[in-house]
Design a protein around this nucleic acid. Structure first.
Length: 234
DNA sequence: CCAGACGTTGTT
DNA sequence: GTCTGG
DNA sequence: CCAGACGTTGTT
DNA sequence: GTCTGG
């Protein structure tokens, strides 16, 4: 799955790599330990003056459906199964109207051993310095706040998952969906609103080639951060 | 009709 | 055991 | 995802 | 919001 990742690049690097025009909001600082409920940068096509602009948005990780009574549900919706997003009430509207790319350099996965221990692995691409996770985003109106309060709308997001390819199956059986750079436009295309087309696009994505590296258990605590977290364990 | 759910992961 | 916080 | 809390009353 | 269960 994907419950912790690395995103240490500068905003300018993200803008150029994802071909985005502008930033909306305040990007979080560099982190080698991005955790659910934190603010993260995402890339999406947003309507502005009748035309679409590709922008960097800042969203809280953990999707809150627009109809939710309580934002707490977001902490359970940090991932969405790509096989079923077109059917699930929590994700289907975002799946056809609010797809996004979540920039990441790599992610962590905890491998369970026979004796019940959890070994953190860092998974990354040796060829690509930046990955794009397939994501969805949603706006939630906080009913506690007045209609004209600019704080009223909470922007949240989730990362799609799929079955893991055999080569990495020993680490974990689910992993994030990764969009290759040459298919960013297709995934973000606002005109792609047909359920079947979205599902077919997901089904057509290639398996990424990632390298697993066992790292220190320091990554377990979200209070720890820094480039040392992705170094090979002793 | 209204009430209640709406999710993923891993583990049992 | 289960929920919340990060 | 993992870590850490998990409670009330009254007083400072 | 929208679907399922009763």
């Amino acid at each position: 799955m994907c419950g912790r990742y690395v995103m240490s690049k500068a905003t300018s690097d993200l803008l150029s790599h994802f071909d985005a025009k502008e930033v909306e909001g305040s990007p979080p600082g560099p982190s080698w330990n991005v955790a659910p409920t934190q603010n993260v940068a995402i890339v999406a096509e947003r309507l502005d003056d009748g035309t679409f602009d590709r922008r960097l948005l800042i969203a809280k990780w953990g999707l809150v459906p627009s109809w939710a009574k309580d934002a707490k549900i977001g902490s359970k919706l940090i991932n969405a199964r790509s096989e079923s997003i077109l059917e699930k009430p929590s994700f289907r509207s975002a799946a056809v109207k609010r797809r996004a790319i979540v920039p990441a350099e790599g992610y962590y996965e905890w491998q369970k051993t026979e004796d019940g221990k959890k070994i953190p692995n860092y998974l990354f691409s040796e060829k690509e310095p930046l990955l794009g996770f397939a994501g969805l985003y949603e706006f939630w109106p906080d009913p506690e706040l007045p209609e004209d309060d600019p704080e009223r709308w909470l922007l949240t997001c989730t990362v799609l998952t799929t079955t893991t390819q055999d080569a990495l199956g020993h680490v974990h059986d689910r992993s994030p969906v990764i969009i290759p750079q040459d298919r960013f436009a297709e995934w973000l295309d606002p005109d792609l609103t047909d359920k079947a087309d979205v599902q077919h696009l997901l089904d057509s994505l290639p398996e990424p080639t990632l390298t697993p590296r066992i790292v220190s258990t320091r990554v377990n605590s979200v209070r720890n951060n820094g480039p040392e977290l992705i170094e090979p364990a002793e």
